[in-house]
Structure formats: structure tokens, C-alpha cells
């Protein structure tokens, strides 16, 4: 029996797909059998971030409509054989699938995998309803910005109304230099408003842009974001991991440079 986790946010562009790719890969690195499902029908991009778009033959809508078997649509990851991807359709839209069909599909997958991660589209309409239909728990991704937090709050309310009880928070794209200056909210401000458990904080990292463009999730690598994602995976498994110190350590030379720049 597997755990079905939906990764949602409400607001677009806060890092759901990146998080799904990295957390999925991280769990696979820890020897779990993981399947990633892209539920963003019409605007799929989980396959791009995973670097698997040239391997797509069938997709989620084909499975739901019975045009192919599940095994034909699932794509094995390049690097980890225990990680699979069920891509979405690019030429249909979100009305092509119903919540009941999603539940049936997920039930089919429960036998074979330890973790099923659902990448939810932005918004609160049909796409969102499809994605949360079969979910046991939710990870809400937000950035420390007012608009993202408003939308995350709405989503948390909707998740509660739809009986998804286990909801945890990931704060993404934190910029500690801005937090220090008081220009950006810090983690405590965010959790004060949203009032749910924090499962991870991921700093803004240039490496992420490089990794998504190249289609290679960076979880587990040396950079701060990679470590943060790895920690999230450990916490998902129930381990207690202390939160990373995200302060940017700048050398004396850089500090001198800053002083001269300001003048």
C-alpha cells in the first residue's frame, strides 16, 4: 500500500513541479519505489523538468480513456530504475479527466509503488479537484510573498473542506539576504499566517534554474537547495531532521566589495 501525496499551491510559478521532481527523485535515492503523476493536463511540464520528454509515447489521458495499458504509459527514469513518470497530455485540457477516474487510476498504482506524487496544476478548478481526488496527504508550496500566501491559505481551506487532513508546508525561494534587510517575510511570519506544520524551507538557488533547464533534478547535490530537498525527503519518511541554516556566508572580501558597491 502506498502513500499518495499531492503537491499543490494555488498560485502558479512557486515551484510545485520543481518540488515534485526533486522530492520524487530524492525518495528514489532512498530506495523507495516512486511514481510521479503530472495532472496538469494541457500545460504539462513535469516531463521536461525530469528530462524525459523524448520518451513519451502514451500519457495519463490515454490510460484513463483505455487507449493503452498503464505499463505502456509509465516511463522509467534515466538515472533511477525505481522512479517512474506518468506524463500528462499536451493536446487536451483539464475536462478530459474526472476525479473518479483519477481515484481509479491511483488505486491501480497503489499496489506497485511506495509513494505516488501528484503534481497539481495552479488554480482551484477542475485540475485541482482532479489532483486532490485520490490524495492521502498534501504538501502546500508557497513563496514568502503576500500574493502566494493568500492563495496558499485559500488552498489549505479547500483541502480541509475536501477531507485532505494531513497538510504540510514548504516555503520555497527564500532569499535570506532580503529577509535580513526586512524586505522579505521570514519563515516564522509565513507559518504564523498559514498555521500548518512546516516540512521544509528551500532557498532561492541559481542551480535550480540550471537543473530544470537540463532536466536533471539536483536533490542530494552539494548546493543548499539540493540539501534542503533531501532533508524534506527524510522528513517525509518520518525522520527528525534539523532545519538548514540558510544564512549566506559571505567572505570578508565579498563584504568589502559590498561596502564599495553601496557608495
Amino acid at each position: 500500500m502506498s502513500e499518495v501525496i499531492v503537491i499543490t499551491s494555488g498560485k502558479g510559478g512557486v515551484g510545485k513541479t520543481t518540488t515534485t521532481a526533486n522530492v520524487g527523485t530524492g525518495l528514489a535515492q532512498l530506495d523507495k519505489k516512486v511514481v510521479l503523476i503530472d495532472t496538469d493536463i494541457g500545460l504539462r511540464n513535469l516531463d521536461v523538468v525530469m528530462g524525459l520528454e523524448n520518451r513519451i509515447v502514451y500519457n495519463l489521458v490515454d490510460v484513463v480513456e483505455g487507449n493503452c495499458r498503464m505499463k505502456q504509459a509509465l516511463i522509467k527514469d534515466k538515472r533511477y530504475p525505481n522512479l517512474s513518470l506518468l506524463p500528462s497530455a499536451q493536446t487536451r485540457d483539464k475536462t478530459a479527466v474526472s476525479p473518479e477516474q483519477m481515484i481509479k487510476l491511483i488505486d491501480e498504482l497503489r499496489e506497485d509503488f511506495d509513494y505516488i506524487l501528484l503534481d497539481c496544476p495552479a488554480g482551484i478548478e477542475q485540475g485541482f479537484k482532479n489532483a486532490i481526488a485520490g490524495a492521502d496527504r498534501a504538501l502546500v508550496v508557497t513563496t514568502p510573498e503576500v500574493s502566494a500566501i493568500r492563495d496558499a491559505d485559500r488552498i489549505i481551506g479547500l483541502l480541509g473542506a475536501n477531507d485532505v487532513k494531513n497538510v504540510e508546508l514548504i516555503v520555497n525561494r527564500l532569499r535570506m539576504d532580503m529577509v535580513k534587510r526586512g524586505d522579505m517575510m521570514n519563515i516564522n511570519d509565513v507559518t504564523d499566517i498559514l498555521a500548518i506544520e512546516l516540512i521544509g524551507a528551500v532557498p532561492d538557488d541559481e542551480q535550480i534554474v540550471i537543473s530544470t533547464n537540463q532536466g536533471e533534478p539536483l536533490v542530494g547535490s552539494d548546493c543548499l537547495a539540493g540539501q534542503a530537498y533531501a532533508n524534506i525527503c527524510h522528513r517525509l519518511l518520518g525522520e527528525q531532521v534539523p532545519f538548514l541554516d540558510l544564512e549566506v556566508k559571505s567572505s570578508v572580501w565579498n563584504k568589502l566589495k559590498d561596502i564599495f558597491k553601496k557608495n
Binding site: R150, D151, D153, R154, G157, L158, I193, A195
Partner: peptide, 21 residues
């Protein structure tokens, strides 16, 4: 939470926060 509306005939005492929205 944001987007929720509580409509009441009588006076109301809320044990919790009212989030923006």
C-alpha cells in the same frame, strides 16, 4: 481561511484567527 465566509444571525465569538481574504 482566505475565501471562507461566516454568516451569522446572532453575535459571534470566534476562537481563532481570521486570515486575510
Amino acid at each position: 481561511r482566505s475565501g471562507q465566509v461566516l454568516d451569522c444571525e446572532s453575535s459571534i465569538i470566534i476562537l481563532g484567527d481570521i486570515n486575510p481574504g
